[in-house]
Write a protein that binds this DNA or RNA. Structure first.
Length: 570
RNA sequence: GCGCCUGUAGCUCAACCGGAUAGAGCAACAGCCUUCUAAGCUGUAGGCCGGGGGUUCGAGUCCCUCCAGGCGCGCCA
């Protein structure tokens, strides 16, 4: 919905007597811009009007008179193709961006509403690998998107810091670890003993028995277990925070699974009291057969709690604390059933707010093994990407220097970091989140074509032009000179931005922003290849500077949403 | 076995909740920098939209079925 489609719907409504809102939904953008800027297919309309679609189209077109935003209107079979009055359209769009400033694209839809977004949530004592990255950057992008929709966003990092796995870590550390080594290289040592547990516990039931025992002790408050656990947690969180800082991501809460332990006994009591919990094979479950789901396991035979139990507690606690309008869980698709069960159990517990919960799932990262057959650590990917970016800067050094002058060493480091990271982030966010993504070094480390750096580069080119423009950017320009197809294309895309954010929020889908940003960057590069901004006739330069300014604004907004740096030079 | 998801160019992905001739990028080939950043632009080549039925004026998109792959299905998270 924009000013043009509104005008089209009003015009056809006037000719047919049907409601403009109903007609509006049929309006589309022709595949080939040669046909027109917007089109209205008459097929469905012809049924209610009892006329052939072609005749209907012709009749409507005969009534058309150019006015306001609509310059022209023709038929092509059953289609009515409209052409925009470019000058008027350019003025509406560019003035809006100019005057709204950074607020362009934002809305008040979520004003007064709070949304909780749980994302990233890595497991303590486990390496942060490229698989975890998806939740982190998808979640971060969603936070940015919902903030622009006016919501009060609360960022939750539901750390995996509780459960049998800590029994495993403690078992491993008691057997093979040492305090000296833990002091010297904390995380490395932790990973060493933990992976050793995995290797040796394959067919060793006693080891698992021991691990379960330690976790039970942990839940019972055993001092030794507690002290080890809290040291391990500290070490990991420190490492995670360093990484988040590097990524430019913050959280409002690091209340992980362990946080809810005091809540659990009361929860179990209440669930037993309502008769929701029943004993089954020695464990306690909520039967869900009636909803075509396997039973939800709440308490193990040894009375220890499970992931699901803690998630129920977390939901209750969060609703009490934050009174959210929405809460979304950015967690991988393998856990879909888990969340279906969670939401159903909460509903059965009588919480009307269970309807406000959503699982925002995403596909797995496949085949991310190195030659040694291990998972790829995020840190390694980042290092490799940054190094690769440094090499590119090195290779193009002379060429760049001739164009933009010497870049200081410090700035070069920052550019390499931003570009390397930009490539990784964009690669993850450009596809629909539910798709599995193939881990491919070449793809992640490519900086040309449909990549993050391509988009960053388009922004940089805007900056270059604005930097060299000596005049003042102003909204009072001669919009008539923005008459080329390339300029119209840019203006159309710029106008889409608010709707793009709206769609991204409605679908919990950051890729909508990524794809849009890429297309805007492409349009801008094509525009620059065919037209000059600076050094033209004054009124032309003024108008194109305003256009460039608009592109820069929107590109910068997209980059910020996705968590990528909008560089000035690169 | 049951359930959910995914099959579009050699590869990685689009296609605006049914519309006109299915679009990009990578890889390949051929061009374009004495003027705003060449991390760029232009061109060539590349397709039975997994197969088969159906609904419709109209299907990559909806329904059925088959095939292939992924994920999940009580004491892990």
């Amino acid at each position: 919905m924009n000013e043009v489609t509104r005008a089209i719907a009003d015009f056809i409504s006037g000719e047919t007597g049907l409601s403009a809102d109903e007609l509006h939904r049929w309006i589309e953008v022709p595949r080939d811009p040669q046909w027109g800027d917007y089109a209205f297919p008459c097929f469905t309309l012809s049924r209610t009007m009892k006329k052939s679609p072609q005749n209907l189209a012709r009749e409507i077109v005969l009534k058309f008179k150019p006015a306001g935003l609509l310059a022209d209107c023709t038929t092509a079979g059953a289609y009515i193709n409209f052409r925009i009055q470019r000058e008027v359209w350019a003025e509406i769009v560019l003035q809006r961006i100019f005057f709204e400033g950074p607020g362009y694209g934002q809305s008040l839809e979520g004003a007064g509403k709070r949304i909780l977004i749980e994302f990233s949530s890595p497991n303590i004592a486990k390496p942060f690998h490229v698989g975890h990255l998806r939740s982190t950057i998808i979640g971060h992008a969603l936070c940015q998107i919902f903030e622009r929709r006016g919501y009060d966003v609360v960022r939750l990092n539901h750390l995996g810091d509780w459960g049998k796995q800590f029994g495993e870590v403690i078992t491993a550390f008691k057997r093979w670890g040492s305090l000296e080594q833990l002091e010297a290289k904390p995380l490395k040592h932790l990973l060493e003993v933990y992976s050793r547990f995995h290797q040796e516990s394959k067919d060793e039931e006693p080891l698992h028995e021991e691990a379960r025992g330690w976790f039970r002790k942990l839940e019972e408050g055993d001092p030794e277990a507690r002290s080890l656990w809290s040291r391990f947690r500290e070490i990991s969180v420190e490492e995670f925070k360093r990484l988040y800082k590097f990524l430019g991501i913050t959280f409002d809460s690091y209340e992980g699974e362990s946080f809810y332990q005091d809540w659990l006994p009361g929860l179990i009591e209440r669930m037993r009291g309502t008769g929701l919990l029943i004993e089954s094979q020695g464990a306690w479950v909520v039967p869900l057969e009636a909803y075509q789901m396997p039973p939800a396991l709440i308490l193990k035979t040894d009375e220890a709690t499970l992931y699901l139990t803690r998630d129920i507690a977390a939901a209750e606690y969060r609703f009490e604390k934050w009174d959210f309008a929405k809460m979304i869980y950015v967690v991988g698709v393998p856990q879909r059933l888990h969340f279906q069960q969670l939401f159903k159990v909460l509903e059965l517990m009588g919480y009307e707010w269970s309807k406000r919960l959503a699982h925002v799932d995403f596909g797995h990262v496949l085949g991310m093994s190195t030659r040694r057959g291990e998972v790829v650590f995020l840190q390694d990917v980042i290092d490799e990407a940054v190094q690769r970016a440094e090499r590119v800067i090195e290779e193009r050094g002379e060429d760049k220097e001739a164009r933009i002058g010497k870049i200081l060493e410090k700035e070069r480091k920052n550019i390499a970091r931003a570009v390397g990271l930009g490539a990784i982030i964009f690669n993850d966010l450009r596809t629909k989140r539910t798709k599995d993504v193939e881990f491919d070094w070449d793809r992640i480390l490519g900086f040309e074509g449909a990549t993050g750096p391509y988009c960053q580069n388009a922004h940089v080119r805007c900056c270059g032009i604005m930097r060299k423009y000596s005049g003042e950017v102003m909204a009072a320009v001669d919009y008539g000179v923005l008459a080329s197809d390339e300029e119209l294309d840019l203006i159309k895309r710029l106008r889409e931005f608010p709707e793009v954010i709206e769609r991204a929020a409605a679908e919990y889908e950051p890729s909508v922003i990524a794809v849009y940003m890429l297309e805007l960057a492409m349009s801008f590069n094509v525009f620059l290849a065919r037209h000059r901004v600076l050094g033209e006739e004054k009124r032309v330069t003024q108008a194109r500077v305003l256009l460039t300014h608009g592109v820069k604004r929107v590109l910068a907004a997209c980059l910020e949403i996705l968590g990528m740096e909008a560089l000035e030079r690169m």
